[in-house]
C-alpha cells in the first residue's frame, strides 16, 4: 500500500490519495487535503458534509450515495456541487479521511 507523508505523518493511501485507515485522520489533515484538492478553506457547510460522510462510513462501513448525502447531510444537491465542484461524494470522502466511495449512485 502506498504511503503519503502529510503534516509530518505517514499515511496509508490508495493510488488516488484516499486514506485507507480512518484512524490516521485529524482535522488539520482534512484542511490540508482540501487545499491540495482545490478547496482553499473548509467552511462550516463543508464540514457538515465531511462529518456526515465520515460518520456514515464509520457507523455503517460504507460511504453514503450522493442521493442520501443530499437528503441527510443538511446540504442539498445544488449546494453540494457548489461546495465541492469536482464531485461532492468523492471529495468529501477524501477530505474526511475515508476510502473512496464504491457505489455508482
Amino acid at each position: 500500500m502506498p504511503t503519503l507523508t502529510m503534516l509530518d505523518t505517514a499515511l496509508d493511501v490508495d493510488a488516488e490519495g484516499f486514506l485507507q485507515n480512518p484512524e490516521q485522520w485529524n482535522e488539520s489533515l482534512a484542511a490540508e487535503i482540501a487545499r491540495e484538492n482545490g478547496i482553499p478553506e473548509l467552511t462550516e457547510r463543508h464540514w457538515m458534509v465531511v462529518r456526515y460522510m465520515r460518520d456514515r462510513y464509520l457507523t455503517t462501513g460504507a460511504a453514503p450515495s450522493i442521493r442520501s448525502l443530499g437528503k441527510e447531510s443538511g446540504v442539498d444537491i445544488k449546494e453540494l456541487y457548489k461546495l465541492f465542484p469536482k464531485g461532492p461524494a468523492k471529495l468529501a470522502a477524501k477530505i474526511g479521511g475515508i476510502p473512496k466511495p464504491k457505489g455508482c449512485i
Binding site: S65, R67, S68, I77, K78, Y81, G103, I105
Partner: peptide, 18 residues
C-alpha cells in the same frame, strides 16, 4: 433498496448537480 431514485427525482437530481 440500492438508493437509485425514481425517474422524476433522478432527473431533477442531475439538473441540480449541474
Amino acid at each position: 433498496s440500492l438508493d437509485i431514485p425514481p425517474i422524476g427525482e433522478f432527473v431533477q437530481m442531475i439538473a441540480d448537480s449541474g
